[in-house]
Computed example of a mutant assay.
Amino acid sequence: MANGSRQAAWEFFGAELKRRRENAALTQSELGILVFVSGGYIGQFEQAIRKPQADVAQRLDTVLQTDGFFERLWKKLIKEQPYDAYFAHVVELERLATAIYQWAPSVVPGLLQTREYAQAMFLAGNPLANDEYIEELVSARMDRTKILKDATRPVYWTLLHETTLRIPVGGPAVMARQLEHIATLTRGRKMVLQVLPFSAGAHPEMGKLMTLMEFEDAPPTVYTEGVSSGSLLDEPAVAKRKWASYDLLRAAALSPEASLALLESAAEDYRRCASTT
């Protein structure tokens, strides 16, 4: 399903939600209370600005007595897009965010990956996959990176653990170009970069990639990701704790200037290594 067709389908989802809500004589706020989201979220679902998660679609069916309609439509729309179901909603939120803050303990975040780096990562996880399948995955990831090139791009702040700079994903030449790409974005003021050095020792959020997003007219959201799984957290108390952890990481990290210098030094090491192999 093409992007335009998928958006039209989500607009149909929203129009049906509005029609059935009004038939039930419920306001957006009243329906929101019944399905455990804000009335503002219901309005954004109806306008196809935000997409509900699976459990919300299920509760909509229960409250509006629609015999599984919204859950079935949700599953169809999620299935016919290039991302795993657990991650599809995050991609939609990235496009809406006014600010994105990421913590990466071991792997370069998808929004920063070069095509070669992404290909190496997908091959590592799918060693028996054919080239066509790998290319589909890589293309979908590259499509996400376009938000950093848009005129309305979000504020983007990335914290990388030094481990991320030292694991030679794809080999020295690929890593050299990957780190050069991040340096170019940083020098071009497309992002703020900080690196947490090995010398910082123990730190919060040691294991999982973490993404914090802010929006113009919705509460902030936190996404944490492990191996083939992810959790989207928008409960206020949980989100507040994750933001506090991110602030601690920023405080312990190198300054943006020192971080860029360390990254460029690592890139030069990879270039020298590539030239001798």
Rank of each mutant, 00 (worst) to 15 (best):
Q28F: 08
S29I: 13
S29E: 15
L31N: 10
G32V: 12
V35G: 09
V37T: 08
S38G: 13
G39V: 00
I42V: 14
G43I: 04
G43T: 07
G43Q: 07
Q44N: 07
Q44D: 12
E46F: 10
Q47M: 03
A48G: 02
A54Q: 15
D55A: 06
V56R: 11
A57E: 10
A57C: 14
Q58C: 04
R59N: 06
L60D: 03
D61L: 05
V63H: 04
Q65D: 10
Q65N: 10
G68V: 04
L73T: 14
L73F: 09
W74T: 05
K75W: 03
K76A: 15
K76P: 00
K76H: 12
L77A: 13
I78Y: 05
K79G: 00
K79E: 11
K79F: 10
E80I: 01
E80C: 06
Q81A: 14
Q81G: 09
P82V: 13
D84K: 11
D84I: 08
D84S: 14
A85W: 03
A88I: 08
A88V: 13
A88W: 04
E92I: 06
R95H: 14
T98S: 15
A99G: 08
A99V: 05
A99Q: 13
W103C: 05
P105K: 09
V107R: 04
P109T: 06
L111R: 01
T114G: 06
E116N: 03
Y117G: 02
M121Q: 11
P127D: 11
L128P: 00
A129V: 07
N130V: 07
E132T: 13
E132N: 02
Y133A: 14
E135A: 15
E136C: 00
E136N: 02
E136G: 02
V138A: 12
A140G: 15
R141K: 15
R141T: 08
M142E: 01
M142A: 02
M142C: 02
D143A: 15
D143L: 08
R144S: 03
I147W: 03
I147R: 04
R153C: 02
P154A: 13
P154S: 09
V155N: 07
Y156I: 03
T158F: 04
L159I: 14
H161F: 09
H161T: 11
T163D: 07
T164S: 08
